[in-house]
Design a binder for these strands. Structure first.
Lengths: 153, 153
DNA sequence: CGCACATTGACAACATGATGTCAAATATTG
DNA sequence: CAATATTTGACATCATGTTGTCAATGTGCG
């Protein structure tokens, strides 16, 4: 009857992406809550940690694929609650460098430990191969979407 | 050295989900823009349309996996710009029924036509089978996440 | 029937992200 | 070296989503 080779599959995948995105954010908020952190906040801290050295806000934003301003605001909040610290940048008077504070690092590590526990639970039900295939497919879709409509800035 | 069977794959998939979610939203905003609509707005309209009959805001929210309040606000905006209309609900004095207005339906259909065009482009580069597999995997992940931490409300 | 319970719309406060603008700092180029 | 372009932080505005609360409306059960 209807043409099963057109957009139905992509519609379904889009729906699935929206739903799983929401579920991931909710889970991230839950495991960060005991430390006063949210998904957005500890993801930023994770990007700082992953870099291995102090980063500027703009560098972190690029690594996360977010706007500079969005990361800047989260970072300001994190500094207020003492989770990160700003260091002077010898190479740039305005662009200070972000590092996780000792307290921030402790919180982040506990969150990562909890996330690792949850990951193991989740992966008991989901074959690693399927997750890897999905990653590859979603990345390909992302590239195709960006190719059709490049983001500004 | 490190255990490659733990959370790395899920970490990578999570990143991929965040990125593709952002790219989908951006694309949806682009194709809705000529009609004064955004991703969120025409997705709500699409959910109304898909239902096949007038829906309450709460029904639409449940179908989309969003909070009642988020959908309500978007719906109010859509009513202001004449894209949807509210009908009295004989079964409930407060919970009026939403339908797409003639103008709203025209806009939605044009957006869907454009989305179908884009879908076909995208699917030329992405095998339908991989998209279907991803949908299934993401849905399984969503269910597993919800099982670990049921959403409130 | 009548009362506890769930659903619903309305409103408020907040978190997150995008976008736009400006001035300062830095990089590039002629 | 000097003019121009880019990068960056700061600030504002807006769209979207969450959570919480309240009163109005329905539902179901004794």
């Amino acid at each position: 009857m209807t043409d099963l080779h057109t957009s139905d599959t992509l519609d379904a995948l889009s729906f699935a992406i929206f739903r799983v995105h929401g579920a991931l954010i909710a889970m991230g908020d839950r495991i960060g809550a005991p430390y006063g952190l949210t998904s957005a906040r500890w993801q930023v801290m994770g990007t700082v940690q992953l870099a291995g050295q102090p980063q500027t806000v703009a560098q972190i934003a690029r690594a996360m694929g977010l706007s500079r301003q969005a990361v800047q605001r989260v970072m300001n909040d994190l500094e207020v609650i003492g989770m990160i610290e700003m260091q002077d940048n010898p190479a740039h008077k305005r662009a200070r460098l972000v590092v996780n504070s000792p307290a921030g690092l402790r919180a982040y590590e506990q969150i990562m430990a909890e996330w690792a526990r949850l990951s193991r639970s989740l992966m008991e039900a989901l074959p690693a191969e399927k997750l890897e295939d999905s990653s590859a497919t979603l990345d390909a879709l992302t590239r195709a979407l960006l190719a059709l409509g490049p983001p500004p800035d």
